[in-house]
């Protein structure tokens, strides 16, 4: 039998005292909160952003988006709020949380937000929405207050494929993808086409880390897949696998082989070995979306950013000059010009 006695409530009393003390001490310790600015000092727009699986510090996709947002805050004078959802069910709730505050722009980073963004854009017509890597979920056009920002990853991948084809000594290269979805297939298709364009009889290995989102966050598996390709004769591997790519780069370092990074310039992950990176300017897309809202020229609809818009590209600078020969860079630039001019059709599947 459990009876309530004075003794039982002593614990409660003690906890109340502890809590009161923590509240008072904590409030005294916390740095003063910035007062909401008014008048001339008010932010020019309020922007919210929700991160994808992996979160802010993934050193890849989310990180690049975050950089674009920080730049917008510093240069355009906007106020920013971000949320890192902890689980699947929280993603929509996080977007909704920001939309319900009637911010000027709410950004979802990742294809996974597409359906949620469509629905919220219809529910909150006064809020502008932008989806990075947006993938339409039906035949309908997205609502007018939703900008779907897509990248022509196959174009950038085509160029780094050509670089791999021109740089390989074993006439064998590899590809490691994260989650096997149409988005990552675009990287693979472009890459293979690029290799074959400059080296028709080169061999291309291809492997994926899995079919669920955690395939983007499994460095151990990435390392295994890359090691297998290096041991099979590949001397260059291109990865499109988010955090999993850390393992691919580690494998390159261990074997002293070359690797091609993705999304951001990954040279500093392994200065010995990162031949180049297929950069995807998510930061530019985020910054531009904010700038459009600030300037009052935001418009919805799907936009594809390719080589022509500097939405995708490859890295050739002083850092990687010791790995990437000037001839190869010249050829790659010429090929990029051909793609932009439509003289080369790059497959996306």
């Amino acid at each position: 039998m459990y009876r309530l006695r004075v003794r039982t409530w002593r614990l409660v009393a003690a906890l109340v005292v502890v809590n009161a003390a923590l509240l008072i001490i904590g409030d005294a310790l916390a740095p003063a909160r910035p007062q909401p600015a008014t008048g001339a000092g008010a932010p020019r727009a309020r922007i919210g952003l929700v991160f994808d699986v992996g979160g802010k510090d993934d050193r890849s996709f989310n990180d690049v988006a975050w950089r674009g947002l920080v730049r917008a805050r510093d240069q355009l004078g906007v106020a920013i709020t971000t949320i890192e959802p902890s689980d699947g069910a929280d993603r929509e709730a996080a977007l909704r949380q920001l939309a319900a505050q009637h911010l000027d722009l709410v950004i979802g980073v990742g294809f996974i937000f597409s359906a949620d963004l469509e629905r919220l854009a219809r529910e909150f017509p006064d809020v502008a929405f932008a989806g990075i890597d947006y993938a339409p979920t039906g035949p309908d056009q997205p609502p007018p207050n939703l900008a779907g920002l897509r990248f022509r990853e196959h174009e950038g991948s085509f160029i780094v494929g050509a670089i791999a084809g021109l740089s390989t000594r074993t006439r064998t290269v590899g590809f490691v993808g994260g989650m096997k979805i149409p988005l990552i297939r675009k990287f693979e298709a472009g890459y293979v086409a690029g290799v074959k364009h400059v080296c028709p009889d080169c061999k291309v290995f291809s492997a994926y880390a899995g079919t669920e989102p955690k395939a983007f966050a499994d460095p151990a598996l990435g390392q295994e897949l890359a090691l297998a390709q290096y041991e099979g004769g590949a001397d260059i591997v291109f990865h499109a696998s988010g955090k999993t790519g850390a393992g691919v780069i580690a494998a390159a370092r261990a074997k002293g082989k070359r690797v091609i990074g993705v999304d951001s310039d990954q040279f500093h992950e392994a200065p010995c070995c990162v031949l180049t990176s297929m950069v995807k300017q998510v930061d530019v897309a985020v910054f531009d979306a904010v700038a459009d809202v600030v300037a009052g020229r935001f418009r919805g609809g799907i936009r594809e950013l390719g080589l022509a818009d500097d939405g995708v590209g490859f890295v050739a600078n002083a850092d990687n000059a010791h790995l990437l020969s000037a001839d190869v860079v010249t050829r790659a630039r010429a090929l990029a010009a051909d793609v932009i001019a439509g003289r080369i059709e790059v497959p996306s599947q």
Binding site: L22, L23, I24, I25, G26, D27, L29, A30, P31, R33
Partner: peptide, 11 residues
């Protein structure tokens, strides 16, 4: 946890 994170628990 909030104190460690630098936030005021009261707020």
């Amino acid at each position: 946890l909030m104190i460690v994170a630098g936030a005021s628990p009261l707020h």
